[in-house]
Simulated assay, not measured.
Amino acid sequence: MSTAPVPAAASPVPPLFQGLFDDAAVFPPGNLPVADAVPAHRAHRTAWYADAVGPLLCGAGRLDELAAAAQGPVLRVGLVLPGGSAELGPALAAAAPFEVAGVELATRDAREAVAALDLLLPPDVPAAVELPRELLRGDGLDEVLDVLVDSPYRAKFRTGGVVAGAFPDERELAGFLTGCAQRGLPYKCTAGLHNAVRHTDPVTGFEHHGFLNVLLAAQETDPAAAAEVLAERSGEVLAKAVRTLSDRQVTVVRNSFTAFGTCSIAEPLDDLAALGLLSSDPTPQEDR
């Protein structure tokens, strides 16, 4: 006698946030030692919020250190290559003990980076190409995005850092987001986005973009409209806008904005819980 298949349990993480948070714990400003980052990442991957967590990001120069610390089940790793295409071949070889979930290649020449990725990257491994922000101003942005849109690779944009100048203002970020949206080009972001809502850091004075702002701006093709969304500082306003997104809009947003690197997994989750967009304890009362 045949029986109906048992449906899979729904994830406690809404689709808008699934796979959004790449684990950049070993990068500044977190700077968690690799030996501590590995067990912490494994704990994230078995927690109730695991569906929100992407791979553990690791720089090319620390792969030997990571291999020594990553005994046990195969680790999903995203390779971050700040040294450009010259690091690609050696890093892929050094990453043999891991499941390579992606490559993030920094470069000053998008065409050269695409050619290197075409030559060396396994076809099932995704990649993102990052250029310095100074090369993305004016006509430079269109030139780079046009190169990438004709390739299988995402763009990558730096949204923060450890100095004030590393944070683009809303107009600059809006130009990147809408340039990608107009071309149907997916992208990831990195740095400075671990809080949900745009704010001024009370300690550093740095202007931080919020990842909810970026998610909502990802569906805009008009730079002025995107900049307005990026400038919004009310968590209540942003949360209300998130709740009104249709399934189709969620798909459009996440096909565009695929992930961002965060040195803290807890902070974005806590922010979402505080805004009522994610349960901080999804366990039913009777199961506690």
Rank of each mutant, 00 (worst) to 15 (best):
V6K: 02
P7K: 00
A9S: 00
A9P: 00
S11F: 00
V13W: 11
Q18W: 12
L20H: 10
D22R: 02
A25L: 04
P33G: 04
P33V: 03
V34N: 04
A37D: 00
P39S: 06
R42E: 07
R42H: 09
R45V: 13
T46V: 14
T46D: 15
A50N: 09
D51P: 01
L56R: 02
C58W: 07
L63T: 06
A69D: 03
A69T: 03
V74N: 05
R76A: 10
G78K: 01
G78T: 01
P82W: 07
G83Y: 01
A96L: 12
A96H: 13
A106K: 06
T107G: 12
R108A: 10
D109P: 10
A110V: 10
A115I: 08
L117V: 05
P122N: 05
P122K: 02
V129Y: 10
L131Y: 14
L136R: 14
L148Q: 07
P152I: 08
R154E: 15
K156G: 09
K156A: 09
R158P: 06
R158H: 07
R171Y: 15
E172M: 13
L173R: 11
T178G: 08
C180N: 14
Y187A: 14
K188W: 14
G192S: 08
G192F: 07
L193F: 08
H194E: 09
T200E: 14
F206D: 03
A218F: 07
A218E: 10
Q219G: 13
T221N: 10
D222S: 06
A224V: 11
A226N: 06
A227G: 01
E228N: 04
G235C: 01
L238G: 08
L238C: 06
S246V: 12
V250P: 06
V253R: 05
R254H: 04
S256G: 15
S256I: 07
S264L: 01
I265T: 12
E267T: 15
G276Y: 14
L277P: 09
L277H: 06
